[in-house]
Amino acid sequence: MSLRSTIDSQEVDDLELVTRTRAGDRASFDELVNRHAAKVFRLARHITRNDAEAEDFLQDAFYKAYTRLDQFNADAQFYTWLVRIAVNEALMRLRKRRNNKTVSLDAELETEDGSLRREAVSPDDNPEQEFSRDETRKLLEEAIDSLDEGYRTVFVLRDVEGMSTQETADLLELSISAVKSRLLRARLQLRDKLKGRLHSHG
């Protein structure tokens, strides 16, 4: 009897897989890993900015999820719960290796004095046209990597992972206004970085 084939052959939701895992079925946990590993890796890689560290962290996140599965509340989404473990793990690792560089993340944005680049561009100017998909992806990855941690994490959760402002605020223990402010700054910085990089190749 193969539990794996049972999982593959029908739609089983995450909650059912969690229940089966709790009952001792390891194949069900492997299926949860299969479903969510890519997203957790992407999140880890964005936060840590390091492939090896992201892989290491990926293993720890799933290991911790497995050992804490009895704490999972069935009213929650498994992925959201997993992301919480993953983000906490990634931020903890980051803090360990980070120097004490501090920046003001939540200061007011200014519209004067050129703090925002506003040079006019053609509405038809499409930065993707000159690059292959892989090249563009690499530029995007580098642009995200270059953001400060506070902006990067908020941007990744909101715009890459598609979490809501409230979910992001809860996860990072920030106020709604701090999440919004950081998201805006991240987006504006990425706009500048992307434009500069892509134009330098053009």
Partner: peptide, 22 residues
């Protein structure tokens, strides 16, 4: 643009090692 790209795709060997290690 960011929302349309799957940045940092999971390498197949990383997934294999993950399942093995777990």
């Amino acid at each position: 643009i960011f929302q349309g790209y799957d940045c940092h795709p999971l390498p197949e060997n990383v997934k294999g090692r993950l399942l093995q290690t777990l």
